[in-house]
């Protein structure tokens, strides 16, 4: 018998083992939900799958009586737009300052202390200020996401630039590159896949800030909806929404990774 640490599951076992925890959780939920519903058919805490289905059908497939919108898709669109804008703007700012600080010592010494301090401010504590300054509209939500993840991206990318071997930067100069050409031909292309990694890592935080902002002041969005229906204990809406948010988070992560693999093959095969 081999040691436990040398035993590896085969492909079928891998799939079964990976799926098993999900199945177990689902079973536990179904059993518990069923037990409560038998005692009290109006129980709202653990709704049955069919209840959730009905609630979601109403939100996703029937126009709202009040506004005529399909609320579920409106929420999804609003949230994804905010998330996309917030993360996109953060990516651009992060890339710019990350590379600048990594390559140019004067810039690094000038800006690093400031960025470190900014990154220590809890973004949610700033939310009231953002609401006061930027109003309750889209801008304050996007600014919150940007504020929350940009310092991390800058610091991460700056560190990655500094990790590039000195030899590479010296070699580029012996080939006739100016500071600018070192940035566009040597540093930027090698940092782009790192940006994708940083974005994947900051997506969790971005969702957190998005839902927090939507919960406090908004008229649509996934976070707005779950906090709204919480008043009615509408677990039949909250649970599917949470599952949907989780799925969207998974999907964005998957897309970022696929794009990175597609465009930076050299990066993923050297790791």
């Amino acid at each position: 018998m081999k040691r436990l640490l040398n035993q590896h599951p085969d492909t079928t076992q891998k799939i079964i083992l990976g799926v098993l925890p999900f199945v177990v959780l689902l079973l536990i939920y179904l059993v518990a939900s069923d037990a409560r519903l038998v005692k009290n058919p109006d129980d709202k805490l653990l709704p049955s799958i069919s209840d959730m289905g009905r609630a979601m059908e109403k939100l996703a497939l029937q126009p709202s009586k009040r506004t005529g919108e399909y609320l579920f898709w409106q929420d999804t669109g609003a949230s994804l737009t905010r998330l996309g804008l917030g993360v996109g703007i953060s990516a651009l700012i992060g890339l710019f300052f990350g590379i600048l600080n990594g390559v140019i010592p004067y810039s690094r010494i000038n800006l690093s202390p400031l960025i470190t301090v900014i990154s220590l401010i809890p973004p949610l504590a700033l939310l009231p200020i953002l609401f006061i300054v930027f109003g309750l509209g889209e801008l304050s939500k996007i600014v919150l996401i940007t504020f929350g993840i940009t310092p991390f991206i800058i610091r991460d990318l700056q560190g990655k630039v500094l990790e590039l071997p000195d030899e590479q930067l010296i070699k580029a100069q012996t080939l006739g590159a100016s500071s600018w050409l070192v940035i566009v031909r040597v540093v930027l292309p090698q940092i782009l896949p790192r940006l994708f990694e940083a974005l994947r890592l900051s997506l969790g935080a971005a969702w957190l800030f998005l839902i927090a902002a939507e919960a406090i002041a908004s008229t649509d969005g996934l976070g707005y909806r779950i906090f709204l229906v919480r008043r009615y204990l509408a677990m039949d809406i909250i649970l599917p929404y949470v599952a949907w948010i989780t799925f969207l988070a998974f999907l964005t992560d998957y897309i970022l990774r696929s794009v990175s693999v597609r465009f930076f093959p050299w990066f993923h095969s050297t790791k």
Partner: peptide, 10 residues
Amino acid sequence: FQRYSVFPHL
């Protein structure tokens, strides 16, 4: 150099 003389992304 002994190492890192070529650019890995090209």
